[in-house]
Amino acid sequence: MAQVKISVSNLNLHYGDFHALKNVNLEVEENQVTALIGPSGCGKSTFLRTLNRMNDLIEGVKVDGEILLDGQNIYRQEEDVVSLRKRIGMVFQRPNPFPMSVYDNIAYGPRIHGTKNKRKLDEIVEKSLRAAVLWDEVQDRLYKSALGLSGGQQQRVCIARLLAVEPEVLLMDEPTSALDPLATMKIEELIQVLKKDYTIIIVTHNMQQAARVSGVTAFFLNGDLIEYGVTESIFTKPTDKRTEDYITGRFG
């Protein structure tokens, strides 16, 4: 069994009175792709956003329980949220490049974190774009707006932008749901490459996608983590009736 990267225990989250995550316990392995599946509104995004504390931004959110990243509780008092978000990066459902050049998009994170040297930035930009398998497509339009790219390219800009801050964990919230099949395929291939160096957690509505890209799958329902384990066994012989119903498309 691989090293545990993130360990979640007794995690509860309330939006005001609404109990959105109910006592979730889960361990995420290092250098593994973990897929989160479940019907709409079951709390997948909410769970994902607890991992980099993006929920802190929403008023009235209450979180309790423990999330250990390499053994350290990220919800402890003195946790530095900024450096946490450097370590755990996030890709969103809709590509959201900044309205700046491709170059400035990628260099954004490093600049924020203090890299000023132009040569160093050039290096980071090229390395990140190569890692996101985008370099060949954009190398001659680095200084043009990233918004002029296709949706799939924009999403890879967002991934490259993330890689530029050298995170350890990548959170992806339905990263391909706004993309066409070809662009989706490219992102999936990219995920396969990235999992060598990163721990990846991906939310998806697409069963085939979960089966294709992930090694471990977790099934959520109404804020409960119903079942999680090796993707193959979840899809071939789920232990819980509700999981089976969901993956065979009987509801959700």
Partner: peptide
Amino acid sequence: VPDSLREASLALGANHWQTIYRVVLPS
């Protein structure tokens, strides 16, 4: 300015002020 841009910036480890100054105001 869409919230998605603010989130993108914050998720990269920028603080609120950096996000305003470098992303929100230019946009």
